[in-house]
């Protein structure tokens, strides 16, 4: 039977040394060109407590975010399952700042969390033709009300990349948002605890 390993080995044995070096050099240059840096992403508002969790999240999302979002969108629209996990709104509320340099950060801006990679690989997401591309204040208050101070301090120590200065500004802004909107979130909880039936009952008891 034809054995490809022996065949290639045979060619390599008969090849002049200069040719071997040349092929190796071409391959090395080629591989070096492939090894480009992925674009730097904006820091998320909420950070994981451990680096392992963070790494696992990044690995999972880099590969699977499209499938997870697609699965979740059907679950939500058709079945009405509205958990935060894999919800586009939850992604946006955590990864996109409410304001960036005093302006709303649109998905058309390459600094937008989603646009950073998508413009790099020239893949256009359709999400934002219908979905809002930045957090909206009252939903942000809800999402962020759970962030503990512990995670917030951990965030600062995790800032390793070159965007540290920008991110610190962002974080401070976000902390301000959290501080000011805490009252809103508790107020929201109070209203949502009301039994809707009681409201109707009062109005229709006459």
């Amino acid at each position: 039977m034809f054995n490809s390993y022996l065949y290639i080995n045979g060619i390599a044995n008969r090849m002049p040394l200069i040719l071997k070096v040349f092929i190796l050099a071409i391959a090395t240059v080629g591989l070096y060109a492939c090894d480009s840096e992925p674009p730097k992403l904006m820091k998320a508002v909420k950070q994981f407590e451990s680096d392992e969790q963070r790494t696992a999240h990044i690995d999972n999302m880099r590969k699977n975010h499209k499938d997870l979002l697609r699965h979740k969108r059907d679950e939500t629209v058709i079945k009405g399952i509205r958990t935060e996990e894999h919800s586009l709104n939850a992604c946006i509320n955590c990864h996109v700042p409410a304001k960036y340099n005093g302006k709303i950060l649109r998905h058309s801006d390459p600094k937008h969390f989603c646009a950073t990679c998508h413009s790099y690989v020239a893949a256009k997401p359709d999400c934002f033709q219908c979905h809002v591309d930045h957090p909206v204040s009252n939903t942000v208050a809800q999402a962020e009300s759970n962030i503990s101070k512990k995670i917030q301090t951990k965030t600062q120590s995790l800032m390793l990349d070159s965007m540290t200065q920008v991110n610190t500004n962002l974080l401070n802004e976000n902390q301000l948002v959290i501080n000011t909107t805490n009252d809103v979130s508790t107020a929201h909880k109070k209203t949502s605890n009301n039994d809707p039936v009681d409201v109707i009952g009062e109005s229709r008891s006459e």
Binding site: R82, C130, H131, D133, V136
Partner: peptide, 24 residues
């Protein structure tokens, strides 16, 4: 084309929409 939609009500060009009894 629309922007700044409500977070619980995605709306966009080229789709039909109607009352959804405030499903969220």
């Amino acid at each position: 084309e629309l922007q700044d939609q409500k977070q619980n009500t995605p709306r966009g060009k080229g789709t039909v929409e109607s009352c959804n009894m405030c499903v969220t």
